[in-house]
């Protein structure tokens, strides 16, 4: 029991509204050519910031 495997926070649910500040941060950090996958990138980043 020494390593946290397979217990990552589940962020897979689709959501329709964005929390305040989310879009500003996304705009600041995600280059234009990655915008089509903005939500996927943000979701994984949030997961890492939450769990890591």
């Amino acid at each position: 029991m020494s390593w946290k495997i397979g217990r990552k926070t589940d962020m897979s649910k689709k959501y329709t509204s964005y929390p305040e500040g989310y879009n500003r941060v996304a705009r600041d950090i995600i280059p234009w050519y990655m915008r089509p996958v903005k939500d996927m990138l943000m979701r994984l980043l949030i997961t890492i910031l939450v769990d890591g």
């Binding site: 926070t9 589940d10 962020m11 649910k13 959501y15 509204s17 964005y18 929390p19 500040g21 989310y22 941060v25 600041d28 979701r43 949030i46 910031l49 939450v50």
Partner: peptide, 25 residues
């Protein structure tokens, strides 16, 4: 109800401090 919203508004401020989202660009 909304894990992303919850992470954004509750977990991350608790973990990184209230002004977490306003961190330097």
């Amino acid at each position: 109800d909304d894990p992303i919203k919850y992470a954004w508004e509750v977990i991350l401020p608790k973990k990184y401090g209230e002004s977490w989202e306003k961190k330097d660009k």
